[in-house]
C-alpha cells in the first residue's frame, strides 16, 4: 500500500456562488461509494462575501480535495449522515465562520451565548487588552 502526501489531487474549482446549485452531497456521496475516508473540512474566508469549503478525503492512496464556493448566508447541506465524523467539522465552521449547515447546531468550541461571533472571518477584529482599554473597559482582565 502506498500513499502520496503532496501534491494533492484537485477537482476543478466550482463556479461562483449559485445557491442551491452547489451540489455538495452528490459529489461527497461518490467518495462514500469508493470507501474514501474524510480527513477534514476546511473553510476559508475569501473576503468578498464568499467562502471556500475544502472537503479533503483520503481515497485510493491519494489526498483528494473537493472545493466549493459558498455565498454568505447560504444554508449548506450537511454530510454527517454519510460521514458521521463530519459533524464536528460542520459545528466548528458554524462557530468560527458563522456559516450554517442544514440541521446542525454550533456550540462546539464557542458557547452559543458568547459575545464572540465568527472570530475567523476577515471582518472580525480580535479583542485584546489594548482594544478593551481603548473602549474604556476598566480591569478587563480581572
Amino acid at each position: 500500500m502506498t500513499q502520496t502526501n503532496l501534491p494533492a489531487k484537485e477537482t476543478t474549482p466550482q463556479p461562483a456562488p449559485k445557491g442551491p446549485q452547489v451540489d455538495i452531497r452528490t459529489k461527497v456521496s461518490r467518495m462514500d461509494k469508493v470507501y474514501a475516508q474524510l480527513i477534514a473540512i476546511t473553510a476559508v474566508d475569501l473576503g468578498d462575501g464568499n467562502f471556500e469549503l475544502i472537503y479533503s478525503f483520503f481515497s485510493k492512496s491519494e489526498l483528494v480535495n473537493l472545493r466549493f464556493t459558498i455565498q454568505d448566508g447560504y444554508e449548506i447541506d450537511s454530510i454527517a449522515d454519510m460521514f458521521p465524523g463530519a459533524r464536528n467539522f460542520e459545528r466548528e465552521i458554524i462557530d468560527l465562520f458563522g456559516l450554517s449547515f442544514k440541521g446542525v447546531q454550533g456550540g462546539l468550541l464557542i458557547m452559543p451565548s458568547s459575545q464572540i461571533v465568527a472570530p475567523l472571518r476577515k471582518s472580525s477584529t480580535p479583542e485584546t487588552p489594548r482594544t478593551r482599554a481603548q473602549k474604556g473597559v476598566a480591569n478587563a482582565d480581572h
Binding site: 503532496l6 480527513i39 477534514a40 479533503s56
Partner: peptide, 14 residues
C-alpha cells in the same frame, strides 16, 4: 496541505 503521523494519528495542516 501537509500531513504527518503524530503519535495519536494523522495530523493535518492547511
Amino acid at each position: 496541505f501537509s500531513r504527518v503521523e503524530a503519535p495519536r494519528g494523522e495530523l493535518f495542516y492547511y
